[in-house]
C-alpha cells in the first residue's frame, strides 16, 4: 500500500539556516522517532535503520537512503529511500521532496512524500498505517522544531557561514532521548485517540 504525506512546518530560522539543517541528514534523521543513520557512504548515500511499532508488532527496517537531487538555489531536496525489514517479510520505500521557502517569520519547510509498504506490514498493519504515520510525523516535527530552536540559539556562530554549499553545522544539542525513542504506550494511545476522533467526526458528518 501507498500513503502520501504532505505536510509543512514553519520554522523561526532563516531560510539558509533551515536549508542547512535539512541537509544534515544525520541530524534530521535523529528527529524521526526510531530512526538513525548507521553509515555514511558518501555525500549523497547513507545506510540507516527505522523501527516502527504497528499494533502488536515491531518492524525494524534497514535500507539505503540516496539524495537523488539537491538544488541549493531552490533549497529543494529529493530523497529516495528503500529498505526491508530484518526478517525479510516486509519492504518499504520512501520518495520525499522537501523544500525550504522564505516566510515573513523565517522559513517554511514543506515535505511531500510517498511511502510504499509491501509484505507483512501491509497485510497486518494497513489499518494502522495512516494513524501511525501521523503520530510519527507529529513527533518528527516537534523534534525538528526543537532542533531549529537550538540552532537559532547558536546562530551567531554559523550565520556568516551560510553559503550556496551545504555548510557544516555546529553540533546541535540532540533532541531529548525520550522523544526519539517512541514510547509504545504513548503511540498506542495516540492511535486510539485518533481512531476515536475519526469515529466521532464521521458520526457527526452523517
Amino acid at each position: 500500500m501507498k500513503i502520501t504525506i504532505d505536510k509543512s512546518l514553519d520554522l523561526a530560522l532563516s531560510p539558509d539556516l533551515a536549508w542547512a539543517m535539512l541537509n544534515d541528514i544525520e541530524g534530521v534523521t535523529a528527529c524521526l522517532p526510531g530512526a538513525k543513520i548507521t553509515e555514511t557512504i558518501d555525500e549523497t548515500h547513507f545506510k540507516g535503520t527505522v523501527s516502527v511499532k504497528l499494533g502488536p508488532a515491531t518492524v525494524s527496517f534497514k535500507g539505503n537512503i540516496e539524495i537523488a537531487e539537491r538544488d541549493a538555489k531552490a533549497r529543494s531536496l529529493h530523497i529516495i529511500g528503500t529498505g526491508s525489514d530484518m526478517g525479510g517479510t516486509s519492504g518499504a520505500s520512501l520518495d520525499l521532496h522537501a523544500v525550504v521557502e522564505a516566510t515573513d517569520g523565517g522559513s517554511r519547510l514543506s515535505g511531500k512524500s510517498d511511502v510504499t509498504v509491501t509484505g507483512k506490514v501491509a497485510t497486518f498493519g494497513a489499518r494502522l498505517m495512516n494513524s501511525v504515520s501521523d503520530v510519527l510525523l507529529q513527533k518528527f516535527f516537534a523534534n525538528l522544531a526543537m532542533r531549529a530552536e537550538a540552532l537559532q540559539a547558536a546562530q551567531p556562530l554559523v550565520a556568516t557561514a551560510a553559503t550556496e554549499n551545504v555548510m557544516s553545522l555546529p553540533a546541535a544539542p540532540a533532541a531529548p532521548a525520550a522523544e526519539t525513542n517512541l514510547n509504545a504506550l504513548a503511540l498506542a494511545w495516540a492511535v486510539i485517540k485518533d481512531f476515536l476522533a475519526n469515529l466521532f467526526r464521521r458520526t457527526k458528518a452523517t
Partner: peptide
C-alpha cells in the same frame, strides 16, 4: 490487491 501487489485479504 493494492497497486503494489499486496494481498489485502490474507488473514
Amino acid at each position: 490487491y493494492d497497486e503494489q501487489g499486496n494481498v489485502l485479504g490474507g488473514t
